[in-house]
């Protein structure tokens, strides 16, 4: 099979197309996803190819879209639903967190809701607070839903496939700022990503940076700069999957370097970094040379006119945290 050059959006599209093609139970629905191919054009061409009974334009009703998908999933379909922006997912929260995730448990394992909720997320598009949200942490708290977040073309394609095939609900936290900005060669072979595996993006000896989402690319740049300018050797781990997260990969890294910096776009308090910091001190306390540091957004809404510059963690703040942890003295 020949490799093709796709951007992230096209890779997500190819992943959906592959599963719509190979499994007649897969359906896709959401606002504007059909005829127009979605406001980002992520679902472009899919209705033309698979018909309007399977690629469905819905009314403007997030709660209704997810709730009806829950019903479809109970009946044995595999719905993929698109929420236009993650900022609008909250209307559907009850149906995601207390219905889709609970049918399996509450029915003693008789029913399940295999479904994918696509949640375009992250900032950097001058979107203001509803169109730039990183609200994945809300979904971490109760179990029952897996959380995947691709930040490469390969992951976009393969995580989409993995999410659709998974027997449980999956939240796919999609990287809006990378949709068109990132492209790469990929072989569209229908291979799913392995859920629960992190990726060591860069091997290093001095400090582990644990991150996920589009900001991983800023971290990589900072690491290269630091290596060239200061000799600090950063190891970068893209978690890729928040539930379940790859504890083995994290501990291997942190026990080696003895230092951990966590970087995410979501707000600080009870962000995913809080879970990581807790688990690192529980399981690797004796290996740590320093406290765990977090780089995150503050606990306030994403600001429209200066949010992309000052609210979202950037290369400067990531670098400061790494330098700080290297300078740390007891």
């Amino acid at each position: 099979m020949k490799a093709r050059r796709l951007n992230v959006m096209e890779a997500l599209n190819a992943g959906m197309a592959h599963e719509l093609e190979s499994d007649a139970d897969v359906v896709l629905m959401g606002e504007d996803v059909g005829r127009a191919g979605g406001i980002f054009r992520t679902t472009s061409g899919l209705q033309q190819r698979f018909g309007s009974a399977r690629v469905i334009d819905t009314p403007l009703d997030e709660k209704g879209i997810v709730a009806h998908a829950v019903g479809m999933a109970l009946y044995g379909l595999r719905p993929i639903v698109e929420i236009q922006f993650s900022g609008f997912i909250h209307d559907a929260f009850e149906h995601i967190m207390f219905c889709a995730t609970r049918y399996r448990w509450a029915s003693g394992g008789q029913y399940s809701c295999p479904m994918v909720i696509r949640s375009p997320s992250y900032g950097g598009i001058k979107g203001g607070f509803w169109h730039s949200q990183s609200c994945e942490a809300y979904f971490v708290h109760q179990g029952g839903i897996k959380i995947l977040t691709p930040a490469t073309v390969d992951d976009a394609y393969r995580m989409m496939i993995a999410a659709i095939r998974d027997p449980d609900p999956v939240l796919l936290v999609e990287p809006v700022p990378l949709y068109r900005a990132l492209s790469d060669e990929i072989v569209l072979d229908g291979q799913a990503a392995e859920i629960g595996r992190a990726e060591v993006v860069r091997a290093g000896q001095d400090v582990s940076v644990l991150t996920y989402g589009p900001i991983r690319h800023q971290v990589a740049k900072v690491a290269d700069d630091l290596a060239a300018q200061t000799g600090i050797d950063v190891e970068i781990i893209d978690l890729r999957c928040l539930i379940p997260y790859d504890i083995g990969c994290i501990l291997d890294s942190v026990t080696k370097t003895g230092r951990a910096v966590i970087v995410h776009e979501a707000p600080l308090s009870l962000g995913f970094g809080a879970e990581l910091a807790a688990v690192i001190q529980e399981k690797a306390f004796g290996y740590l040379h320093t406290p765990v540091l977090r780089v995150a957004a503050p606990d306030v809404p994403y600001h429209f006119s200066i949010g992309d510059e000052c609210y979202r963690p950037d290369a400067g703040r990531i670098r400061i945290a790494i330098e700080r942890i290297m300078e740390f003295e007891h």
Binding site: E31, D32, R35, A36, I39, D57, P59, L60
Partner: peptide
């Protein structure tokens, strides 16, 4: 219209 959705598909 609501973005690309005609009012006739809304109800």
């Amino acid at each position: 219209w609501a973005v690309t959705t005609p009012a006739s598909a809304q109800t």
